[in-house]
Design a protein around this nucleic acid. Structure first.
Lengths: 189, 189, 189, 189
DNA sequence: AATGAATGAGCTTTCATTCAT
DNA sequence: CATGAATGAAAGCTCATTCAT
């Protein structure tokens, strides 16, 4: 019973690591099994197909991320601070979980992910939606399509973290604040 | 010799179309040959391996893009106009060449592309480098790492065009101008 | 112990149904266990291997069939009537038990059944042997090898029932009598 | 070009032999390739799937058989002689080609063959159809469903040849004639 | 240069069987 | 006796690459 959970988790973890490292097609089931310390057949005791395994992993991470991004968030904060808070959480989460970040990249730009990475980020974070809507009404935020506001916020964030992970940029706390400040300038009136 | 060029080109074109349409792993060499109207073996007369074919295609597109983006560019334009001009060209090029855009996406987030899509865009466009450097000196542009300035410029652009291609956003001329304006707000002092 | 019998029976019944329905290779042990309402391992408490299970099922059906075919049979009946009686019983049994018939088909023409379906029918029904032997002595039956006499009797029967099960022929009582009459014409002098 | 035909033929031959010998599930593609003296992949240059290979083999044999069974047949022969002629040809063909006979058995009683072996035999041999129809009209043949007449003719034939192949019966020329005579007694008025 | 049949390593998936509980 | 997660050999199939023509 603990067994079953452990096995499932170790498969998911092995899959996460391998795909982050080598991509979908560098991660055959045999290799996943090896890394998880189980045998190939066992994967199919827990997931009907390899695709299902990958989707399950995606769901798992999605749920986890959502929780973390909302941590400490409150609608009582002043408007600008709310934007910074959500962005800050997202930056931290993505930077502290580079495997997940790399996996999401792979997933989003593959047949698995129907839409793109940026959408994965906001899709479950209604607060951003609400925030932008309210901001437009109160004439704090530029009157642009919501999609574009998301692009202006998440596009730089994702690219900056990629650069950071590739060693092309060093995202220290202060620089993250400046980056958020810059996208704030982009979206605010 | 005209022969050779034609064959090579038709292979590259077939590869571009197929990969944009079906991704790397939906594009076996046999299918590329079919679409190019040649036989499998012929691919190997022009490219040592499939990987080499893909890299060659990438180089080809890279060079072409560079030329187009610089069209009409002059250092005599006022500073802000120069930023707008380069961005506008890039938007138009990427939107008018959706196959290439889709291919670059695929390429960037795969083992083929060591670095990310955003870098593909600026890597050969020194004018942006020069522009940002000058802007910082003249205190027109925020004093941020060049990488971050690129992220602030190209991140939203790439995401907006993706959304556009997915039908989630309609990028008309006016909206493109607003989008560039927003990233200008992000990078300018 | 009542338990033991019940479990064993339910495994055999599940096996019969599945194989009749989907053939040997559409009937994995896991599916048999599911249908029997037990778990995979339990099958191996009752049968050493899957093959043994299948052979056991075969034996079971063989024995049952033998009993039924002899029902109401008596050596006091006139000769021709004895032939008709055995054939009639066999027709009825096979038609009333289509799962078993289908299973026997599958079994006979597979590596499981070393010999053919027709032999399965007569092998335990000595009365037919006795009848044919006697008939030859009394010059009622053609002087042919016993095997051929069985072929002349059971060949049409099996094929007719197959056709019936496939909806290609409607075997009503009267037609069965005619069919038996025809094979009687084939074997009698 | 001769190459292609040879390869295809050797695959078909290897498949015929193996399936006759070991059945469908004792004949993996790897074994077929081995026996044909080619590599696994080559099978898939000639047949899209293993199923298609098996169906193709079936078609091939079907066509061949049809030709042979009709050899020397003429509607000018007297009625009974026509029946004997077609049966004789069929007996000889099936006995001289035991691999094909065994394959047809396997095929007919598997998911591949929707209907049974007997139907495979008559389905392409309209002369039998015509013969029985005419015989019924002329009151030479019993007034029974055509299907049943086929069962009465082919049922014993198939079973007798099986017995012969299993060494349970020795079908010499004289005995074949007697067997045909017996089924003739079964179908004639 | 061009061809395309042949190759075979490698992939995903299945399933009879085992064994610790 | 019963369980069912774990096993791993083996299956069908794909596809980048080769090479004789």
């Amino acid at each position: 019973m603990a067994q079953k959970t452990d096995t499932r988790s170790s498969i998911l973890q092995a899959t996460l690591e391998l795909i982050a490292e080598k991509g979908f097609h560098g991660s055959p089931t045999s290799m996943i099994a090896d890394r998880a310390g189980i045998s190939v057949g066992t994967i199919y005791c827990h997931f009907k197909t390899k695709d299902e395994l990958i989707h399950a992993l995606h769901e798992e991470l999605e749920g986890k991320r959502r929780t973390v991004i909302l941590k400490g968030y409150s609608e009582d904060l002043p408007f600008g601070e709310r934007y910074f808070h959500l962005c800050r959480n997202t930056y931290h989460y993505l930077m502290e979980n580079p495997l997940e970040f790399r996996f999401m990249e792979q997933y989003s730009y593959s047949p698995y992910g129907v839409c793109n990475l940026r959408q994965k980020l906001d899709s479950y974070v209604e607060p951003f939606h609400a925030l932008f809507k309210l901001g437009i009404e109160q004439q704090i935020i530029k009157k642009l399509p919501l999609m574009l506001l998301f692009d202006l916020t998440f596009g730089p964030m994702i690219n900056a973290i990629m650069d950071h992970n590739l060693g092309l940029l060093t995202l220290e706390e202060a620089l993250i604040e400046e980056a958020i400040g810059a996208t704030w300038d982009a979206v605010r009136r």
